[in-house]
Computed example of a mutant assay.
Amino acid sequence: MGSCYCDIAPGHPLHGPYHDHEYGFPQRDEPVLFERLLLEINQAGLSWETILRKREGFRLAYDGFDVDTVADYGEADRARLLADARIIRNRLKVDAAIHNAGVIRGLRDTHGGFAQWLDAHASESSRPRDKASWVKLFKRTFRFTGGEITGEFLMSLGYLPGAHRAGCPALRRIAAARKALGV
């Protein structure tokens, strides 16, 4: 995102609300986690502003980010998505969204859900998992999750540090959100 997001986002009609109320904040809801992963995957090669502008289009095209619905998409849904100008029409990204929805649905059986899977891997050692080990884990588990995508996804949820600079007012809200969720 170029210079520090904390310096450029405040006051911007798209970046501002995302920076102030979402970026770096913990999330537990499966549709929100799936949305964030899907948006980060679709951002690859594009600006975050483009993704934020298309966010509502993604929400509509992907049935409100309902994991079960997306996991069950077939060829007609793929064709529909590839023809939908409201989203990024890239076959690899569309296929990754459908595949990853199926993976997330499977995480319910193995870990209780996506948030629990993330938590289990964040705390499986005595020290926090570093970006490189997260990237390896994501590449084994999901599609279209290289280093930048995985890093931004995890930073956007507070699993990796660096979402905000020291002294950013959003840090107080993040701390309060973490306390409220008990994380």
Results as ranks from 00 to 15, higher is better:
D7A: 13
P10N: 10
L14Y: 12
P17D: 06
Y18A: 05
E22F: 03
P26H: 03
D29Y: 01
E30S: 11
L39I: 06
E40C: 10
N42C: 13
N42T: 03
Q43D: 04
Q43K: 11
Q43I: 02
G45A: 11
L46A: 07
L52T: 07
R59K: 15
D63F: 01
V67P: 10
D68H: 09
T69D: 08
T69P: 00
V70C: 07
D72Q: 14
D72H: 13
Y73D: 10
G74S: 10
A76E: 15
R78T: 06
R89D: 04
L92I: 01
A96Y: 04
I98H: 03
H99Q: 06
N100C: 07
V103P: 12
G106R: 07
L107K: 09
D109M: 05
H111L: 03
G112Y: 09
G113Y: 07
G113H: 08
F114K: 09
Q116F: 00
H121Y: 12
S123V: 09
P128Y: 00
K131G: 05
K136F: 00
R143F: 04
R143A: 13
R143S: 13
F144H: 05
I149H: 01
G151I: 05
E152T: 06
L157D: 02
L160G: 06
H164R: 12
G167A: 10
A175F: 03
A175V: 07
A177M: 12
K179C: 04
A180W: 03
